[in-house]
Design a protein around this nucleic acid. Structure first.
Lengths: 352, 352
DNA sequence: AGCGTGTGATCAAACGCTTGACCTAACGTG
DNA sequence: CACGTTAGGTCAAGCGTTTGATCACACGCT
């Protein structure tokens, strides 16, 4: 009876161990270990060294990282929990930054995404704890306050792109205020003085912070803040499109949008009214969401959220390489100039 | 003298071990192990069980996964190497799918991104090998042929979103042909018969496969294939915008774009000419790149690349749960209907 | 008393590696 | 020649678990 082959259990040859290398080289395992790790404290003859390396190569030996970790009492793992790995490129950037930085210091990232599921999150953290991670970077895909999951406290951790007001909880976040300021400055530098600010409807550090930065920039430029120029819109294309009329009714020459998607919607709204960017209205976005900002017509000037750095710095803080002064470290949001801003035209755009 | 605290080396209390639990519960480590793993073969009294669990809870014990792996001879790790974790949401989706599936089977993903750097790649694979991963999923962010890195062969592996023609190399890829067919069908179903096909300029499985699918759909609908309706364009917004004139010159009622970004550019091109989507020209994209497709005005009908499934199935194949028949498994690209397709209007749009 | 049996828990040997302590020749030196 | 020294290694304990083999004991039978 020939059975239908069960899905090919691929040949899993047992890995070569140090013992095998030792006997192949005619030395003790201790010697092999000393050679591999190039221990300065041990005296091993050049000839022996050669034989050991040769055996290693011949046998295709790979050290067993887990055995090593075990005996050394600490792992080279760092956990990274993210709440949305794939929803946006944002989390990806954070991971990327953390990854690079971890790698640089000989650590391996244990990534888990929870998709906002608390159980998954608890499980993920438990898994990391069981692997005796050196610490955990806990990140969210958009900047917001969070409750620190209880089990996090069992290890060293740092919050990234989110924060908690428990004392002593380190966090790395984007500096929304400076971002808001940077956005406004993009416009002010070109001479705009009547600038609409399309804020999001959802309360968040971004909502409050960016507006504050906007006002600071206005103040610094000697422009009185006019609350009537602040509008609310759902933070997406539809929101931006819908708010177009209100924006134009304010008789402004420029608009700061809460994010790039709102700007994208606004582009559509303006186009539908026969208005041109930046000729009739200058627009700046926020987030620097590549797919959108770089490829809108005209390309969108915006302010970048430092996701990569958030991840990288988060890791450095965890490793004690950067000192948060036991508080939050706020990372600057750099402006990205493209083509959606020009000097205001003499004639005001027609309303409506 | 109060010294300026050096970057807070956080309290890293040595983890609780099984031995401590054992003595706290007044039993042997063996007993603790048996209780924890709920070994059916061992007979442990209910009272003892309780005491052990109590001790575990009191001490906050977490098993040491590495010790466990070591003694059991196999790890619960699976490696995932990606060539671009953050460039697009694509890789993120693959990771997400692999992650979920791995988790489901009790595995932990060791993610590494190489950003196309061969050294980084080799290092990443070495790291995984040293952690004695159960296998490696090697993925690329866009569908293409690759050379299998030598060290991959040291373990079990499967290619995802890429392939090699070495014999016996398992791969999971998107079914470009069926995707191309699906795209065309979106249009054919509404009655379009003269359809432009904007292909990419770069040779790739996508370029060849989608066109083939397109032709198959045409044939199935009894429409003669007209090579003149196939145009080439750089696969981005600029390309789509630039090709608009040529498309219109072909006097078509609909366009299949190589991807969503091309469609986005085409939207702009059409708008500039006062043409409307889908009223004057129906458009379908490819990729289902959320940020774009769902938020263009009108929302873009497109064909989705099954990234999540690519990751998930890749993992299943690795685990021997799905059988690739020792070849490639091609995953369908499902159509996503939105608002950019309507029946062709009686009057042909004016050429460009 | 002697024996089998079932129950409840312990012993101790691995797993692959690191590392401080220890061993053994061979080589000066006084 | 006895003695320290050094070069070149080896020994063996131990990291935290798992697990097959074992053990101690009480119970019920003959």
């Amino acid at each position: 009876m020939t059975e239908p082959n069960p899905p090919a259990p691929r040949a899993r040859r047992r890995p070569v161990t140090m013992r095998e290398v030792a006997s192949a080289a005619g030395v003790s395992v201790a010697t092999v270990s000393l050679v591999i790790n190039d221990k300065k404290t041990a005296r091993i003859g050049e000839a022996t060294r050669q034989r050991v390396w040769a055996a290693i190569r011949d046998l295709g030996y790979r050290p067993n990282a887990m055995a090593k970790n075990l005996v050394q009492g600490d792992s080279r793992f760092i956990g990274l929990v993210a709440d949305a790995i794939a929803t946006t490129p944002f989390a990806g950037q954070i991971i990327h930054g953390a990854q690079d930085e971890a790698w640089k210091h000989g650590y391996v990232l244990l990534v888990a995404n929870t998709e906002g599921n608390d159980d998954a999150e608890a499980e993920a953290i438990a898994m990391m704890l069981e692997h005796k991670v050196r610490g955990i970077v806990y990140s969210t895909w958009y900047h917001r306050p969070i409750e620190v999951p209880g089990s996090l406290a069992e290890t060293d951790f740092v919050l990234v792109n989110c924060f908690a007001d428990a004392p002593g909880v380190r966090a790395v976040v984007p500096d929304e205020v400076s971002g808001g300021r940077a956005a406004a400055e993009l416009l002010l530098a070109r001479g705009h003085r009547r600038i609409a600010f399309v804020n999001t409807t959802t309360p968040s550090p971004a909502r409050e912070g960016r507006l504050r930065g906007h006002r600071e920039a206005l103040a610094a430029a000697g422009i009185a803040f006019d609350p009537a120029l602040v509008l609310d819109a759902r933070p997406d294309q539809a929101g931006g499109y819908a708010v177009t009329g209100d924006v134009l009714a304010r008789d402004v020459t420029a608009v700061c949008c809460h994010n790039d998607r709102v700007a994208m919607g606004l582009y559509d709204g303006l186009r539908d009214r026969g208005l041109r960017v930046p000729g009739d209205v200058a627009v700046v976005g926020f987030d620097n969401q590549e797919v959108i900002a770089a490829h809108l017509r005209p390309a969108l000037s915006t302010v970048a959220l430092p996701h990569y750095d958030l991840g990288a710095v988060g890791l450095r803080v965890l490793l004690g390489l950067d000192d948060p002064g036991d508080g939050r470290v706020a990372l600057a949001c750099p402006p990205v100039e493209r083509d959606s801003v020009a000097a205001p035209s003499a004639a005001r755009p027609a309303a409506g």
